[in-house]
Design a protein around this nucleic acid. Structure first.
Length: 871
DNA sequence: ACCAAGGTC
DNA sequence: TCCTAGACCTTGGTA
């Protein structure tokens, strides 16, 4: 049987991968999407083809030679994006680490290398497989040379295969003639000009008849569409140049030793290290030699006897640092009922030498384990866990100050990740890879070890980045505050909620009928796609395209459309009602527990800015702006004998901005007047304070908001329905009035560009990788992020401090009153009636003095028998 | 799994 | 020129 070689067009595949995949970066900020895509394609290929030889060809510089000729000719070729350029040397190193032969040669394009190699190999009776995104290479196809072209179709990569006969089938020309075809029709992707006025159809006709441009030129007078005849005559030079550009040199001179391309095991240890660095987690599973021999694992032990367990606990109690994990007993439970599983055991680690997995069963009960663990948590100096809050309902923590939550530390060090796992921490911070196929006992040891060992590493990194205080004094105490809030939950009247839902259902039913009638057909109003067709095609309402998938039916679009037809307003109303019913009435009802309360989750490691997020359900977006939606707050009620106290900061972000910028005018404005929007209007528009019109105040308010978001004239003009020019004028006037703010925002962007991150008052960091993007949109986004994050982040820090202190005070004074919600600038307390006044005092005191700024922090506070009333 | 939509601060 | 406000979460529809 003949042997087989795979030839890969390196730059072409990298390019394809780069533009076909979303941006990926590793912890060091290196872009990796092209490398990742390249490797996936390569692996797929190796599996399918099982070749004996493999070679990847690169251009020396991209672009070179033939392409450069045309680039100069036309001067259009864009430089390679920076994000892609930086990946080129890396992929070469990775390939080298995998023992894959790469080839590049000055003065020769990858095409020429591949063309020449394919001919040389074919002569040796080998099977050749060429992979490239470049259709130019189809000219190389023969009976034994297969050209494979990957295509991205709706996210999936499909590969088109071409032997000579397939080229003929697809283009009705032979591979050799394909060059001439290209010479006539051109190819913008490959930078081949072609002959103007001749497209695929005409070109095919001409080449099938004359087989080459030269013959066609000889018979130029006879060419069928007179237009083509004229064109070929006129642009003959261009045709010749195009053919030259399109022709791949199959007889290039360069040295190449086939034996070097012999494909061995690409899953080498060296490559493994690269894959780790690049964070290609799912590619790592391909390496069957897991992590390079691990000493740590030798020290892991599985404990099933109580006597041994007791000895270990005794040592742990005296240990300086203890890493722990709980795991479920999945052996005695069906996967579907995982949440009902009992405790299967724990992982425990308090030295570099050993790790233990202590299992329940025999004479070791779950309760006993958890009690011992609570003792350890109290006596060890540092008790470390991952997502500590999620274990706190099982392990009673008596000394919060001993605790270290690895997930929170990892979050502070990089708040941009969308999830935090101990495996990631092990890899990123400890250079430790965990075998995915390991048993749960071994995994428990690994996690315990990770939690143990990362204390030192992460503490040092937090100190290095000056976030140790933030971690110790805000984030760690917050873990306990959030835990308390989750435990407390909030009481919701299920009956009233149901009634509210029923009322909505009636309205929805009526509206549905009316809409169908006016539209003249029935359809799914909830489907933006169907709705778009009904409105803009069937009913012929004026309106343009907006989204990728079709017509936009967003509220602002429909609002503009409302005067055109009465059905539009009804649709808007229908939307409102269905939103309320599905998300809030029905949605919330599903979360009411047996105790009549909703115990939502408050997440600490989600947002990029440092805010808390709320899920299952989201209690931070309960309607308030529209009266109809606001009514839902009436079903949130305190326990009997209690009342709600709701306190929210007044414009905390603007006040933070005033403080951080140090702008004297804004600071004075805050000290003198409480109506900041009015005073802004007065100062920016140069009008006496008392003569500010409501419209002027509204405009000033919009500008104030815009500033906080990282202003752009376009955004502001959208918001105020004014021209961009007018909006730009507002912004200019604003900055003229408050020059300190301009300086501050500019500085934030400059700092972010230089350092790669922005910082809040309290030292919280947010990296801004977008600022180094070559894409204008991305970069602009980065600039807004740089302006917004320090402000939003500092505000988040302040309320975190406040809520920690409020909660601690309530507990210290043994009050029955309890914190139930945080909504970014608002705290809701379920206050025991006898404690009502004390609670209000605590709230005011702690919230207003959470931070000492150059402007006062003020709050609004209300009480009520439900949330509607208290807000 | 993704998008469009829409709810909050 | 690029056509854009910051931070989230849940829903229903569609591929």
């Amino acid at each position: 049987m003949s042997s087989k070689i795979v030839l890969i067009d390196g730059h072409s595949i990298l390019n394809r991968a780069f533009y076909g995949l979303p941006d990926l970066t590793n912890a060091e900020g290196l872009h990796t999407n092209a490398i990742y895509g390249f490797l996936t394609i390569m692996f797929k290929l190796l599996e399918e083809e099982k070749p004996d030889y493999l070679t990847v060809a690169f251009d020396v510089h991209a672009p070179t030679f033939r392409h450069k000729m045309y680039a100069e000719y036309k001067g259009t070729r864009k430089p390679m994006a920076d994000e892609l350029r930086q990946q080129v040397p890396v992929i070469k190193e990775v390939l080298q680490a995998m023992g894959v032969k790469t080839i590049e040669c000055a003065g020769l394009e990858a095409d020429d290398l591949i063309g020449t190699l394919s001919k040389r190999c074919e002569r040796k009776d080998m099977e050749v497989v060429v992979i490239s995104g470049d259709r130019d290479l189809l000219q190389l196809a023969t009976e034994h040379v297969k050209i494979r072209i990957p295509k991205t179709k709706q996210g999936r990569t499909e590969i088109e295969d071409y032997y000579a006969k397939d080229v003929f089938e697809r283009y009705q020309v032979t591979p050799e003639e394909f060059i001439d075809l290209k010479a006539l029709m051109g190819d913008t992707a490959d930078n081949i000009p072609g002959v103007p006025g001749i497209g695929e159809k005409t070109a095919t006709k001409i080449i099938t008849q004359y087989h080459s441009i030269e013959t066609a030129h000889d018979h130029v007078e006879e060419l069928k569409p007179p237009r083509a005849s004229k064109s070929l005559n006129e642009y003959w030079d261009l045709a010749v140049l195009s053919k030259e550009l399109a022709t791949i040199n199959v007889n290039a001179e360069f040295s190449y030793e086939l034996s070097e391309a012999k494909l061995g095991n690409v899953y080498t240890e060296e490559a493994y290290v690269f894959f780790q660095k690049l964070e290609f987690k799912n590619l790592l599973s391909r390496f069957d030699v897991a992590a390079p021999a691990n000493k740590i694992e030798d020290g892991f032990r599985i404990i099933t006897s109580k006597r041994e367990a007791e000895e270990i606990f005794a040592k742990a109690e005296k240990a300086q640092t203890t890493g722990t994990v709980l795991f479920k007993d999945m052996e005695n439970v069906l996967p579907l009922f995982a949440d009902q599983a009992g405790l299967g055991g724990i992982g425990l680690c308090f030295s570099n030498e050993a790790g233990f997995c202590i299992k329940t069963g025999n004479d070791i009960s779950g309760e006993w384990l958890l009690e011992k663990l609570a003792d350890v948590a109290e006596t060890t100096d540092t008790f470390s866990m991952f997502h500590l809050k999620e274990s706190m309902d099982q392990i009673k923590i008596r000394k919060p100050e001993n605790c270290f939550d690895v997930s929170v530390a990892a979050y502070l060090l990089n708040p941009l990740k969308n999830n935090y796992t101990w495996e990631d921490v092990a890899r990123e911070h400890l250079d430790l890879m965990v075998d995915e196929k390991a048993d749960q006992e071994i995994k428990a040891c690994y996690e315990a070890y990770t939690n143990y060992a990362s204390v030192e590493v992460l503490s040092r990194k937090l100190a290095d980045t000056k976030m140790d205080t933030l971690f110790r004094e805000i984030e760690m105490p917050l873990v306990f505050t959030l835990f308390d809030m989750e435990q407390n939950g909030i009481r919701v009247e299920a009956e009233a909620l149901k009634q509210y839902g029923n009322q909505l259902a009636c309205k929805i039913g009526d509206l549905e009928k009316e809409i169908y009638e006016e539209a003249g057909e029935t359809f799914n109003i909830n489907s933006p796609k169907q709705l778009g067709v009904v409105l803009f095609e069937n009913m012929k309402l004026p309106g343009g395209r907006k989204t990728k998938t079709g017509y936009s039916t967003a509220a602002d679009v429909l609002e503009k459309l409302a005067p055109e037809h009465p059905v539009v307003a009804k649709i808007l109303e229908y939307r409102q009602y269905t939103k309320l019913k599905s998300t809030y009435a029905d949605g919330l009802a599903n979360y009411i527990q047996d105790d009549g309360r909703i115990h939502g989750k408050f997440n600490q490691t989600i947002t990029a800015t440092g805010r808390i997020s709320s899920t299952e359900p989201n209690l931070q977006n309960i309607p308030v702006r529209m009266e109809l939606g606001r009514l839902i707050r009436k079903v949130f009620i305190p326990e009997d004998g209690y009342r709600f106290v709701d306190a929210d900061y007044s414009q905390i972000e603007l006040r933070v901005l005033a403080h951080c910028s140090g702008d004297e005018h804004l600071i004075r404005a805050y000290k003198e007047q409480s109506d900041i929007h009015r005073i802004t209007a007065s100062q920016v528009f140069h009008i006496p304070f008392d003569e500010v019109t409501p419209q002027q105040r509204r405009n000033a308010k919009a500008v104030n908001f815009g500033i906080v978001y990282g202003i752009s004239s376009f955004g502001l003009s959208q918001d105020l329905s004014i021209t961009r020019k007018e909006a730009a004028k507002y912004i200019d006037d604003y900055f003229a009035t408050y020059p300190g703010i301009k300086t501050f925002l500019d500085h934030a962007v400059t700092h972010a560009k230089e350092e790669g991150y922005v910082v809040t008052l309290f030292g919280r960091r947010r990296p801004v990788p977008e600022l180094s993007s070559s894409n204008f949109m991305q970069r602009s986004f980065g600039e807004r992020v740089a302006m917004n994050s320090p402000i939003q982040g500092a505000a988040a820090d302040i309320i975190k401090i406040a809520m920690i202190r409020v909660n601690q005070k309530l507990k210290k004074q043994k009050m029955k009153s309890r914190l139930v919600l945080q909504v970014h600038d608002e705290l809701l307390i379920e206050a025991y009636e006898p404690e009502l006044e004390a609670v209000q005092k605590i709230l005011k005191e702690e919230m207003e003095h959470a931070a000492k700024l150059k402007v006062p922090l003020e709050i609004d506070m209300h009480t009520g028998v439900n949330w509607y009333e208290a807000k």
